[in-house]
Simulated scan of single mutants.
Amino acid sequence: MNHPLKDQVALVTGASSGIGRATALALSKAGATVALAARRTDRLEELAAQAPGEMLVLETDVADHQQVREAVARTVERFGALDVLVNNAGLMLNSPIHGADITEWTRMVGTNLLGSMYTVHAALPHLLASKGTVVQISSTAGRTASATSGVYAATKSGINAFSEALRQEVTEQGVRVVVVEPGFVSTELTTHITEPAIQAMAKDMAAAMRTLDPEDIAEAVLYAVSQPAHVAVNEILVRPTDQAR
């Protein structure tokens, strides 16, 4: 069996479900040792029991910079290095801007954008040492915003901008930065939406197309991180064939 990531250490945030879970499993099957960071440790324990390789469970809220630092430190303490960081943790709490519950804005910015930044900040010294790879899970919403997705789209656009600045700072030091922008993926992300009408609209959209599976995005991540060290796949846009925008 091919193990392109043998002896590599990866940290995946938001690993308890969806894209994060599928990516952690794909990295493990490719030979990596994987640290799993999320709040729902029962799901992480279940995943670790199913994986072919060693996994470390880390209860982590990425919106808390101290918890993020501890997660990175525990990963390096346990496995001796960090080669791949996959920033996947995120929330989608879509609603109209007028009359919005701005605590939902704070949650999205704290998790999607600041959480990604905190994790990069904590992991970067180790990734510079290993000449590793940062994978940022963004979204098609980071390219094209739509009504009711303003703040979610802003966080994903922010991830894109932060990632490009990071790439320019570290690429000549051997660190690769990859932005993956999925379209509509069949995950629990839309269940986060608290507005019943918007949640129903999201379900209708999903029912009208052949959505992506989390494993489709995991394969894109695996493709990028498995390239030779001199090859940087900086951006991957993956939409369902049936998704027009």
Rank of each mutant, 00 (worst) to 15 (best):
A202K: 10
N88M: 08
G99D: 09
G110A: 03
M209E: 08
D7T: 09
A224Y: 00
K156L: 04
M201A: 15
V178I: 13
F184L: 15
P228N: 03
R40Q: 13
G80R: 03
L91R: 01
M1W: 09
M55L: 12
A51E: 10
I137N: 08
T111E: 01
S28V: 04
A100Y: 10
I102Y: 14
A35H: 08
L93W: 04
E215P: 06
L5F: 00
T190Q: 15
P52Y: 07
G158D: 03
E172K: 15
A22R: 07
A129E: 14
S186Q: 15
P4K: 01
K6C: 07
R78A: 12
A154W: 05
R245Q: 14
E46C: 09
G183D: 00
V151Y: 03
P4G: 02
Q199T: 11
R40F: 11
M55Q: 12
G90H: 00
G158I: 06
S95V: 09
R143T: 11
T119S: 10
D242E: 14
G174S: 07
Q67F: 08
Q173L: 13
P214A: 03
A81H: 14
L93H: 10
T211L: 11
Y118R: 00
H192D: 12
L91D: 00
G110H: 02
N94D: 15
M92F: 14
A145V: 11
L5D: 00
E77Y: 08
F184P: 00
E59Q: 15
S28Y: 00
K156T: 02
R43P: 07
N234T: 14
M209H: 13
A122W: 06
T155E: 02
V34Q: 01
A71L: 09
D213R: 15
P182T: 04
L114Y: 08
K203D: 15
T33C: 09
M117H: 11
E172G: 11
V84C: 01
E181P: 01
L93V: 06
D213Y: 11
P240Q: 07
